[in-house]
Design a protein around this nucleic acid. Structure first.
Lengths: 195, 195
DNA sequence: CAAATTTCATAAACTACTTCATTTTTTACT
DNA sequence: AGTAAAAAATGAAGTAGTTTATGAAATTTG
């Protein structure tokens, strides 16, 4: 299946498009290959694109003044990734977004997205649903951070996203879950010896 | 100013409505008085309304099996509050939402909101922008949780939301920031004696 | 306005998690 | 294939934040 077909299949889960609308929608995206370790977002630049992952994996993270690295998001096939604050509010990014594997994405520019939303109610609906799902997902993460211990957050994550656990380095997962890589290593080892 | 006028003023910051549209929009809301300590959302019930606060203050929180109480959100005048996951996905709530003061809200039902979005592109745009802002806000909170110490999160909060600090009990603020009320008390005292 | 209840402060003992330092294992590169 | 580099494991010592307990202050309610 081509990348364009994949994104059409994706949007049709939320809104149903005519053939002509499918054409307009998919024509707004550009397919781009990204090498492992390559950046698609860097701090201080205004983010131009929203990105849909066709294949591969990405990590969004911030680095504070002490050099501490915190993972904000992961994305694999069928997920979206960007610096959300920078893209939505068109202000300078605070994150890096880097490929964890050789990847292929479909990118849509801010201007094209605005045009789509303006010209057709259905596209507006699609992006509204996207934003709602994003907010719902983030709220779940906030709740997990507030209510669970490090070990519980890890258990929760491997249950919800087993495919991701396999593919991302341990230090990245640890910093996503808000703990050190050493501590996650200990949690994992404890689990193994238990069984 | 009446409550209906306030919500019209609010929506006009995002999209510009005709007088007739203003009428349709404001007619979808119902003004309700809520007494201090009264609940507008309780766990296990599907949340029927999205609520705009005209006056007063609210707190959304979860209580885990050990009885630990974690604050998920606050809302004062001009903010919205509900159990977001329950409302958006129309599944049972996990939160309580309770008034911290005698309050007045404008509530809109899920069905009415759906109807508004369907019948008029502008309303769809409005709720899309709402969802985007909500997601952007939540992502900032996730970043704060991951990168800052308890003391930094508190400093950050009083800078961003000084009006809220005044009005909510310390234990609620502490559990919003992911720390115990005892620890927040210590942070506050350290600050005072420092000066 | 007095009693009851809720909220806040303080302190000592404790623990979940971090930091630092070193070794082993895995991955990347010519 | 062999070497360099990155990632993961392990242990020991340290610390940010919690727990438990008690009393004082503020707020609510009859």
């Amino acid at each position: 299946m081509t990348g364009k077909n994949k994104i059409i299949e994706y949007i049709n889960k939320s809104v149903s498009l005519t053939e002509q609308e499918e054409e307009i929608f998919s024509a707004s995206f550009r397919e781009v290959k990204i090498k492992k370790r390559q950046f698609i977002v860097q701090p201080n630049f205004i983010v131009k694109n929203r990105n849909f992952v066709l294949s591969g994996a990405f990590r969004a993270y911030v680095v504070d003044d002490k050099g501490k690295d915190s993972t904000i998001a992961f994305a694999i096939e069928d997920w979206w990734i960007t610096d959300y604050n920078s893209y939505i509010l068109q202000k300078p990014a605070t994150m890096f977004v880097a490929a964890l594997e050789d990847s292929t994405i479909l990118e849509i520019s801010y201007e094209k997205e605005q045009a789509l939303k303006q010209e057709n109610h259905k596209f507006e609906t699609f992006f509204r649903i996207r934003a709602e799902r994003t907010a719902a997902f983030m709220q779940q993460r906030i709740i997990s951070n507030l209510t669970q211990t490090a070990e519980e957050r890890y258990e929760n994550f491997i249950n919800k996203y087993p495919q991701i656990v396999q593919r991302v380095p341990q230090y990245a997962l640890a910093s996503y879950l808000g703990m050190t890589t050493e501590f996650l290593s200990r949690i994992r080892n404890k689990r193994v010896t238990k069984k």
